[in-house]
Design a protein around this nucleic acid. Structure first.
Lengths: 217, 217
DNA sequence: TAAAATATTTAGACTAGTCTAAAATATTGA
DNA sequence: TCAATATTTTAGACTAGTCTAAATATTTTA
């Protein structure tokens, strides 16, 4: 069907579209894909020829319906495999990304369907991101960044923005995990660091941390 | 590490070496890989540069120790995934090959190790082929083709030579499965077809069938 | 054992995906 | 508004992997 590279571009455009609703710029896509703008232009033209994206020179790119369906299928597979690795194969949440990047390109409708069933149709991956169902539907719950809360506000930790191993290991080390309650006890004006209470334990976190933790109030 | 293509060539050489002990010819490899002899020569040269095979022009090719280790690792992954698909995801044994061809190239030591553990360290894949362990060891049990048996001889069906969906569906349809007892009741001289008894049921099979079923006596 | 047949390798070309450098276009701010 | 700057595209080149056609080596056979 589509090459690994094509699927990766579609996935990247899908992610960036949430950020740049009016179209994804060549440079933004180049940064996301860790490649050069010229390579992006080449690939976008190819995707455009295949009707997977809508593209006008110098105007940025958006997914077509066909492109969106394909991108969501890749995201679905990525997140299902991440769930599988953590739930069945003893992976930690900071170890799954690179393997899922490979597994997401395996082509087999039956495999995806049966894996989903085998896992009990999970709704969220180990980082709290929603897993699209077989029809491509997924919940986009109202989530805030911890850094957006004010003193005295509280909520449940439901996801992470940065999924890098470094950040996830920091969270593990400090006993911050999905599902835990967090209350903001104090915000330091000078550097915006927060003193938070996580189920009884106090911890001071910098803005880098609070800007990468999703909270449901 | 190695490309999909390189791994596929190594696997093909590994399989063909059992047949052509003195070295695998370019043409044999071209047929196995469904490609042209010239492409094979190109790739063999590359594998030779990487010390994965031993090659002299016009003399055929054999795996080096490093090449053998790599090939066995690919075979191990292929067969573990086949087992997973049948045992956990409700695949039939005639549906697993193409998906396993993709999954065998996923690069993650931990994934292979944990998958093996999750599956209970299986010894054989759904077609009866041995699954190499983490050290690359696997049993090569004494097996005969059904076509090699004489009238009156009997044994257990332990594997298939042809793993094509067509052949496997024929076996399903005729209730021939791994582990079942088979006794040769009669051999027709003219076409070498056999009348066999499979656990109480009589069936006449052609030489094409009996030449693709492995038996342990 | 030499000609014929077969097998293998070489030469040169093509595609997908990438790159650098240069050219073209768009945006910004004095 | 228009020159400076930033972004994007084009042009041309490179690698991996493949192909066809031609050349060369090996094997067979008469």
């Amino acid at each position: 069907m589509f090459s690994f590279s094509e699927e990766n571009y579609l996935k990247a455009i899908f992610h960036l579209e949430q950020l740049y609703k009016r179209g994804v710029s060549t440079n933004a896509l180049a940064e996301e894909m860790e490649t050069k703008a010229s390579s992006v232009t080449d690939m976008i033209r190819k995707l455009s020829d295949k009707q997977l994206v809508i593209y006008k020179k110098y105007q940025g790119v958006t997914l077509s319906e066909k492109g969106r369906v394909t991108a969501i299928e890749v995201v679905r597979k990525h997140r299902l495999w991440e769930f599988f690795l953590v739930e069945k194969l003893n992976f930690n949440w900071d170890e799954v990304h690179d393997v899922a990047e490979q597994l997401e390109h395996i082509k087999s409708k039956k495999l995806t369907r049966e894996l989903d069933k085998f896992l009990g149709f999970p709704k969220r991956d180990p980082h709290g991101d929603p897993i699209p169902d077989a029809e491509g539907n997924f919940s986009v719950s109202n989530k805030l960044l911890l850094s957006e809360l004010d003193e005295g506000q509280a909520g449940i930790c439901i996801g992470v923005k940065d999924t890098s191993a470094n950040f996830l290991r920091y969270l593990d080390k400090n006993k911050i995990a999905l599902g835990k309650s967090i209350k903001v006890k104090d915000i330091e004006d000078f550097d915006n660091s927060m003193l938070i209470d996580i189920e009884g334990e106090e911890l001071r976190v910098s803005q880098v941390i609070s800007g990468n933790l999703y909270i449901k109030m």
